[in-house]
Write a protein that binds this DNA or RNA. Sequence first.
DNA 1: GAGGCGAATGTTATAATATCACGCCTCTAG
DNA 2: CTAGAGGCGTGATATTATAACATTCGCCTC
Lengths: 143, 143
Amino acid sequence: MTADSLTKALAAAETHCVERGEKLTPVRKRVLELVLEADGPVKAYDLLEALKPGPGSAKPPTVYRALDFLMTAGLVHKVEALNAFVGCSHAHDDGGAELFICSTCGSVEERHGAPEPVNAPAGFMIQRSVVEHFGQCANCRPA
Amino acid sequence: MTADSLTKALAAAETHCVERGEKLTPVRKRVLELVLEADGPVKAYDLLEALKPGPGSAKPPTVYRALDFLMTAGLVHKVEALNAFVGCSHAHDDGGAELFICSTCGSVEERHGAPEPVNAPAGFMIQRSVVEHFGQCANCRPA
DNA sequence: GAGGCGAATGTTATAATATCACGCCTCTAG
DNA sequence: CTAGAGGCGTGATATTATAACATTCGCCTC
Ligand SMILES: [Zn+2]
Ligand SMILES: [Zn+2]
Ligand SMILES: [Zn+2]
Ligand SMILES: [Zn+2]
């Protein structure tokens, strides 16, 4: 992500929060910035390290609280299978997303629109779905 | 799961392993038994507790090694979003499964046959998919 | 301005999850 | 026999996440 598009993404995130009646505080903004800067899924304790020289102190609750906020706001998604986090460029309020993660280069592509599976058990009401695909992206795919 | 069907499942698991040229050792069998007995996703350290009075000692590597084996054999799946494990009644050799987990009663339904999503990025080669749906099953669904 | 309230954050400690590293035992191929 | 591989025991440690409580700050009211 270029510095320019990062700035724009942060501005858009700020607007998104204001519309939801919430505040993108400095700590939250800094965490979002770090997640967006990363070129792939990023670990909570790596964020913690990156935060240390920064504005606030850096204890685990700081980063986990910021991540919780950003996930609720739809600005960050957790990759459950990696215990890691990725930035979201769509800012969708519903939590669901479909992730395609390249195991080779770490790139993450996000897609929407994988709704209720056709083979769900009868009467099952889905509230939250975790959909993560791991493999090789077009660039890293072996010949 | 009834005691009878549990016995049958363990016998089937043993056969499945033999066909793969692997051994369902006592520790592995005991862990599988515990996972199958549970009425929902079960945590590694709960297995550890349950193993303590059992045959071997009970340190984390014991249960994690057994779980790794059982997952590779397709006898157990990990619920990534819960850091928990569920028994598999299908014994499919490929790792993929689609799970429907009731947040109220903890029941888990497993389905197969949700292959390559239509909206994958061009050229992306999927190796492993994690698909977990959380919500309410038909019994627990509010009126 | 003083006081009170709530959200956000700081701080300390601990819980929960998972792996490493090493050595012993057993089985078996050669 | 002997060497190697797989399986497991054991102690230590790494990684991930939360609980509990104190403090700060902005805002509203009196
Ligand atoms: Zn998203
Ligand atoms: Zn790639
Ligand atoms: Zn299965
Ligand atoms: Zn239910």
